[in-house]
């Protein structure tokens, strides 16, 4: 088995004195494609923040056996201020890590890579446009370019298929399958049905985390893990969503 990129051991975290996640154990290896599912307020985004080092832990350990891996992060699109005066090119530039964070100088090679990536993503013509002029799919593409520009070892995506149409969603999932050949992926979604065809394993998060070494939450798996998943019809296609969790 390949060396883990990130190991979470008995992590407890939250905001102020309120615990949001407890007893979290998780290991992310280089070829993993983990689908993180759970209800709203269950702690999915908090888990991401712990891995990214944005959220301090109350107790437990977050370890990086090979040093902190290069990480690409795609936040929820609702967190992005579309009215902010930043161009697509500058948005992607912001994904490059500089040797000196106080004086970030971008090399000619890095800037060329940004141009090439925008070209590959079909955003070349939009590179000088402000992000406010992009469609939902185009913005998501630009944000994905930002997450990938530094050639990460671990790609973390928070609800990447919201605010995009079905066609773009399929396109996005196709890219992620390809990207998983080169990097570990952790994808957060509230919708297990949509992501199960491409993920390899599932982590259910609702206050705590339960890991399922399968890409399906079959009735058998649910019985074994005592993991209740309800079928909820919301949106045009009824799909399975983790509503409550029985690990407390």
């Amino acid at each position: 088995m390949s060396k883990a990129l990130v190991i979470l051991e008995g992590v407890r975290t939250g905001y102020f004195s309120e615990t949001v996640l407890r007893d979290v154990d998780l290991q992310i290896c280089p070829d993993d494609f983990i689908g993180v599912i759970g209800p709203n307020g269950g702690g999915k985004t908090t888990l991401i923040k712990v891995i990214l080092g944005l959220q301090p832990v109350f107790s437990g350990k977050v370890r990086f056996p090979g040093g902190r891996p290069k990480t690409g992060y795609l936040p929820q699109v609702s967190q992005i201020d579309k009215n902010f005066p930043i161009t697509v090119k500058e948005l992607v530039n912001s994904g490059l890590k500089s040797k000196n964070p106080w004086f970030p100088h971008l090399s000619f090679r890095q800037l060329t890579r940004v141009k090439e990536m925008l070209d590959e993503a079909g955003l070349k013509a939009l590179s000088s446009k402000p992000i406010g002029e992009l469609s939902g799919g185009q913005l998501q593409k630009a944000l994905l370019c930002r997450a990938l520009i530094d050639r990460p070892e671990l790609l973390i995506l928070d609800e990447p298929n919201t605010h995009v149409d079905k066609q773009f969603e399929q396109e996005l999932f196709g890219w992620l399958k390809e990207l998983n050949k080169e990097m570990a992926i952790l994808l957060v979604s509230h919708d297990i049905g949509t992501i199960s065809p491409m993920i390899k394993t599932i982590a259910c998060v609702n206050g705590t985390l339960h890991y399922h070494p399968s890409n399906q939450l079959s009735e058998e798996v649910l019985k074994v893990y005592n993991c209740p998943v309800d079928v909820i019809a919301h949106g045009p296609i009824p799909h399975r969503v983790l509503k409550t969790h029985g690990h407390e």
């Binding site: 990214l52 944005l54 912001s94 994904g95 530094d150």
Partner: peptide, 9 residues
């Protein structure tokens, strides 16, 4: 623009 993302960099 995006302080959280900037911190990850």
């Amino acid at each position: 623009f995006d302080p959280e993302f900037a911190r990850t960099k």
